[in-house]
Design a protein around this nucleic acid. Sequence first.
DNA 1: ATCAAGATTACCT
DNA 2: GGTAATCTTGATA
Length: 204
Amino acid sequence: MALNPSTKKLKKSFYQRELLTVAKDLLGKILVKSIGKEFLAGKIVEVEAYHGDKDEAAHSFGGITKRNEIMFESGGYLYVYFTYGAHHCCNVVTGKKGQGTAVLIRAVEPVVGLTSMIKNRFGRKLNSEKEIFNLTSGPGKVCQAFRIDRANSGTDLTGKEIFILDREKIKSKDIGVSKRIGITRSVDLPWRFFIKDNPYLSRR
DNA sequence: ATCAAGATTACCT
DNA sequence: GGTAATCTTGATA
């Protein structure tokens, strides 16, 4: 599948809406990273929402720090953090300035640039076709495949380096909802959203 | 200056 | 299903 030139970049107005609305609407959209002449692209299939006011699991819950300050910007920026001494995770900042709301991109379905993603993830060629489903099926994996790290935190998503293309709108009946994964506080909030039955989810 | 915890992953049994 | 790896960040002294 090639990038459809008729698709358009999502604008600031898309991101600057209410957190949970943006989280669900991001499903089915195409995350794109430009690296030199090449483009890497993946369809967003799994996300989680984080809220600075009513969500103890959010990095923004305790207020602004040097690490999370971009989360408090108005919607339309990328927030990238490093965790467990090994992994980067990327988030889309949403809402209005000062809210501290963002959507974690947990998994994408590879669309363009598969060869580079495979190299970025494994440093070799595929051993088996099954490894395709292990390329971008988790937040740390997405960042490794797309070569996203803290240097990309603060990127304006309406720019040329990293952006998201409008594509399909997933119907609510096709969106799964669950508790979030890997957190220890505010564990009962049903703020994980995913495309039902998609084979590239972090959990099947 | 020191310390504990972490929005994960890969590898083990 | 369980857990070690690994290091940045933010809190505390």
